[in-house]
Computed example of a mutant assay.
Amino acid sequence: MIEISPSKVVQVIFLSREGPVGAAQLHAFIDGLNEDEQAHLTAIAWVGRGAFEPEDYAEALATAFAEATTPTADYLTGMPHLAENLESGLEALGVDVTGEEEDLL
């Protein structure tokens, strides 16, 4: 189903919370992900903000691939509440990231 490691999503969450201080690092991190991982990251954020229901994840993923007209890093870093959307998306999809969060603290 989800083809991006939870630890990578958690890294994006932490970097996005750093605001302007982590902006360049966040952009570089997302740019460093492969196309599949970027699409999955986008789909998780969309589920988290309510644009798609968790059971429609496959549709969200297909839309992320089809509508990738701007660089994913630009799109996601411009998304208001990115960290919250990703957290909500992971939770809605039943992905437990407790261990990954502890590793980054």
Rank of each mutant, 00 (worst) to 15 (best):
1 M>A: 07
3 E>S: 14
3 E>I: 09
4 I>H: 11
4 I>F: 13
5 S>R: 15
6 P>R: 13
8 K>D: 14
9 V>T: 09
10 V>K: 12
10 V>L: 14
12 V>H: 05
12 V>A: 09
13 I>Y: 01
16 S>F: 06
16 S>R: 07
19 G>V: 13
21 V>D: 13
22 G>E: 03
22 G>V: 03
24 A>N: 14
24 A>I: 09
24 A>Y: 04
25 Q>N: 09
27 H>Y: 15
32 G>L: 10
34 N>A: 09
37 E>Y: 04
37 E>W: 03
44 I>E: 02
46 W>Q: 07
46 W>E: 07
49 R>N: 08
50 G>Q: 08
50 G>R: 14
51 A>W: 11
51 A>T: 08
53 E>S: 12
53 E>I: 00
57 Y>L: 07
58 A>N: 02
60 A>G: 00
61 L>A: 02
66 A>N: 08
66 A>L: 05
68 A>W: 00
68 A>C: 07
70 T>C: 06
72 T>L: 05
72 T>N: 05
73 A>G: 06
77 T>H: 11
79 M>Y: 12
79 M>P: 03
80 P>I: 04
82 L>G: 04
83 A>G: 13
84 E>W: 01
85 N>K: 09
90 L>W: 03
92 A>D: 06
99 G>N: 08
103 D>P: 01
104 L>Y: 10
